[in-house]
Amino acid sequence: MDINLVKAFSDNYIWIIEEGTEAVVVDPGEAEQVMDYLAEKQLQLNSILLTHNHDDHIGGVQQISAKYPDASIYGPKETEDIADHIVVDGDSFSLLGQNFQVLKTGGHTEGHISFLMDNVLFCGDALFSAGCGRVFTKDYQAQYDALQKFKQLDDEVQVYAAHEYTQTNLRFAHSMQPSNTAISEALNQVNEMRAKGKPTLPTTIGKEKKINLFLQAEKMEDFKELRDARDKF
């Protein structure tokens, strides 16, 4: 089992789960790069996983589906116009010999979900390294609840978020806690990685517990205060 990335737009990561000659694609906001990758690697598309309905996560689905009509599409109810398998919190299904568990992780959108594959988490825009998604729904309780779900996962769980926001998130975290050595060290490391054009993902739940202020918020009100400050950063 391999997991590789395809870059899209300015900072999106489309994740490709590979097993043998088959692949599962997560949140394909653009199509051409995905289809080029599959062709280059001689992979057959098995399925598409969607975390939510924002265009930078679903914009490539129709074009990809036209080329791979047998590929199943799994997503939350808010993607029902394009998904043929609507999944909800607590559902599980198997792809490529792996079990996928569905977690409701709303807040960024009302129906946002994440997929947990053994010790691998595909969390869309619900969780980023050192951050989380904007709460477009204004339902801060839902986003806070999603973060509590993530905190309950094993520290070893690898986090495959959908955007390369780590550097900006850590700059914000450092501005809030300049004496926090874990955050300072992580920022220095990320600055070096980004200078070399390297992705900062995946991260891990264990690492995020140390550097992600949103995960550390003890109350919803604390989380909202942080989120408001990040939105203005």
Rank of each mutant, 00 (worst) to 15 (best):
Y13G: 02
I14N: 00
I14L: 07
W15T: 06
W15H: 13
W15S: 08
W15M: 08
I16Q: 09
I16S: 01
I17G: 07
E18F: 00
E18L: 11
E18M: 12
E19M: 09
G20M: 06
G20S: 00
G20I: 03
E22V: 01
E22T: 13
A23C: 09
A23V: 05
A23M: 10
V24C: 14
V24P: 06
V25Y: 09
V25M: 07
V26F: 14
V26H: 13
V26R: 02
D27V: 03
E30L: 10
A31K: 13
A31C: 12
E32L: 15
M35T: 15
D36G: 10
Y37W: 13
Y37R: 09
E40H: 02
K41L: 07
Q42C: 13
L43Y: 05
L43K: 08
L43A: 09
L43I: 03
Q44Y: 04
L45N: 08
N46R: 14
S47V: 09
S47I: 05
I48P: 01
I48G: 01
L49W: 06
L50S: 11
L50D: 04
L50I: 04
L50C: 04
L50E: 07
H52K: 09
N53I: 10
N53V: 08
N53T: 12
I58S: 04
I58K: 10
G59S: 10
G59R: 11
V61W: 02
Q63E: 11
I64N: 02
I64H: 01
I64E: 02
A66T: 03
A66R: 07
Y68Q: 03
P69F: 13
D70I: 05
S72R: 10
I73W: 11
P76T: 08
P76L: 03
P76S: 01
K77F: 14
E78I: 11
E78R: 06
E78V: 04
T79L: 09
D81L: 13
A83S: 12
D84R: 08
H85W: 03
I86E: 04
V87A: 11
V88A: 11
D89G: 12
D91G: 12
D91W: 11
S92C: 14
F93K: 14
F93Y: 13
S94H: 14
G97F: 06
G97P: 05
Q98V: 03
N99H: 15
N99A: 15
F100L: 13
Q101I: 12
Q101L: 12
V102Q: 11
L103A: 04
G107K: 08
H108Y: 12
H108P: 03
E110T: 11
E110M: 01
E110H: 06
E110Q: 10
E110R: 10
G111P: 00
H112C: 05
I113W: 08
I113E: 08
I113N: 10
S114V: 02
S114C: 04
S114Q: 01
S114A: 14
F115C: 02
F115L: 04
F115Q: 04
L116F: 05
L116Y: 06
M117H: 00
M117K: 12
D118L: 04
N119W: 03
N119M: 12
V120W: 06
V120G: 00
F122W: 04
C123E: 08
C123W: 11
C123M: 09
G124Y: 07
G124K: 08
D125W: 05
D125G: 05
